[in-house]
Design a protein around this nucleic acid. Structure first.
Lengths: 246, 246
DNA sequence: CCCTGCCGCTGATCTATGTTAGCCCGGACA
DNA sequence: TGTCCGGGCTAACATAGATCAGCGGCAGGG
């Protein structure tokens, strides 16, 4: 939709909320300039460190999660390009989750102190990041409701609906299919289920002619059916009140 | 700890992160000036409205939640005095959850537009609210992990540990007890369990001499035991990197 | 005073999901 | 070419937690 000038995913996202000055834009660009490639599976932050970076995901899939004492883990979310990870840790001065690459990925890492400087120098960016953080929080809340109050079938369906919609917004999905590198173990850790049960549920979704999940690819057979089953409500509508005067 | 001058709970919270100018303080004070009392059980925002207010809880207990199509609901959190509710809805331009009073409560309501003006006039407050929002998000994440990866007993124990710690920070709990107006149905909706099962679990916690939950009051018998059972990790440490120069 | 409704509490049963223990296939690698 | 490994897949069995049905106490209101 929006004509995408050649700009980073992050600035494209933020400008949806607030018009950024050239100076602000160039600072952000500089923050993002230091890019690193990370191999799939690599963990980027561990819980409990105390000197923090923030990361902007540029390419690839990642996951944020917490590990339990018994070795299990709960995946919080799957950042996609343009998403910011670890800002919370910077602000709260305590790393409360881990972050790793699901596929090979490219990230820019920003020292926490730089991030705080940025807010000092360009306070308007505080509001912009607040808006972005609110979107993230809304996603976590949705995830919470999904796990707390839906059974495995609805839950899984809902999960893929949400994923599809997010990816569509970035042009990475169509109405009928999208690429998806998540295996059943990862899906299980995200949905609070066992991998075995995920397998059963995926089979059932397939048998109901709703959704087929193969390695690397998801095919949507019956969108209205899925929507009905999962109680999914799209989060559309203009999502930008726009605090910029003009 | 901090000598509390007579200031609102909200400003006390925000100044923990950033030093506010007198002008900023007075604006916030004005925002908070319009107070309303709401009766217990009253719902303040419904999902799906489209003209939004933000609320600052001043006194009493509240709950934020989503209702499911089948009538069930998932409680997201229990704001306590000083917490801001509905900011997300204002920023995202879509009310994604409901909010109601658990006890009689006092709130200040702030029209969304005022809130946005505030960020335009005093951009530094954007960073301050971003910090506050990060704290909220961390709580939701913790809640997500709790529901996704702990069984009913651990989950319930963890829930009360967290509650106790939050209330202690505001001086509303001691190491051994605190007032708590939540009944078993509400606890169930928060933990993603049935009320019946909550009852059983509370009985078990009592029989294990860990925790007694009575109407209106929670008594902690064995803090280390609870901590061990629930895998609770305190979220202490200075939680303020402080972006203010001085 | 009795009625009503809320809340805590319980036992019996049912079911969704976890656990254990595998098989099979395809791709990477020696 | 064979072996190893990750991942999808399955069946049999175990169990945590939901559901159903109901009791009793207590506070508020007519």
């Amino acid at each position: 939709m929006a004509e995408r000038k050649h700009s980073s995913a992050l600035t494209r996202k933020l400008t949806a909320f607030i018009a950024l000055s050239p100076e602000e834009l160039s600072w952000i660009a500089e923050l993002e300039s230091k890019r690193t490639t990370i191999k799939r599976g690599r963990e980027i932050t561990e819980e409990g460190q105390s000197n923090h970076n923030a990361y902007v995901l540029q390419e690839g899939w990642a996951q944020t999660y917490k590990v339990m004492p018994d070795g299990g883990r709960q995946i919080i979310g799957f950042p996609i390009p343009g998403d910011c990870v670890g800002l919370r840790s910077v602000l709260l001065w305590t790393s409360d989750h881990s972050f790793s690459a699901v596929t090979d990925a490219v990230v820019s890492s920003v020292p926490g102190t730089r991030m705080l400087e940025l807010f000092r120098e360009f306070p308007r960016l505080g509001a912009a990041f607040l808006w972005a953080a609110s979107r993230d929080e809304a996603m976590v809340v949705e995830h919470l409701v999904n796990i707390g109050r839906r059974n495995a079938l609805e839950r899984t369906a809902h999960f893929f609906m949400e994923l599809a919609e997010r990816l569509m917004l970035v042009g990475l999905a169509t109405e009928t299919e999208f690429k998806c590198p998540l295996n059943q173990y990862v899906i299980a850790d995200a949905l609070g289920l066992s991998a075995i049960h995920v397998n059963r549920v995926l089979r059932e979704l397939r048998e109901l002619d709703l959704l087929t999940v193969k390695t690397g690819k998801v095919i949507i057979h019956d969108l209205p059916g899925l929507r009905k089953l999962s109680g999914y409500r799209s989060v559309n509508g203009r999502s930008t009140p726009s605090i910029a005067k003009s």
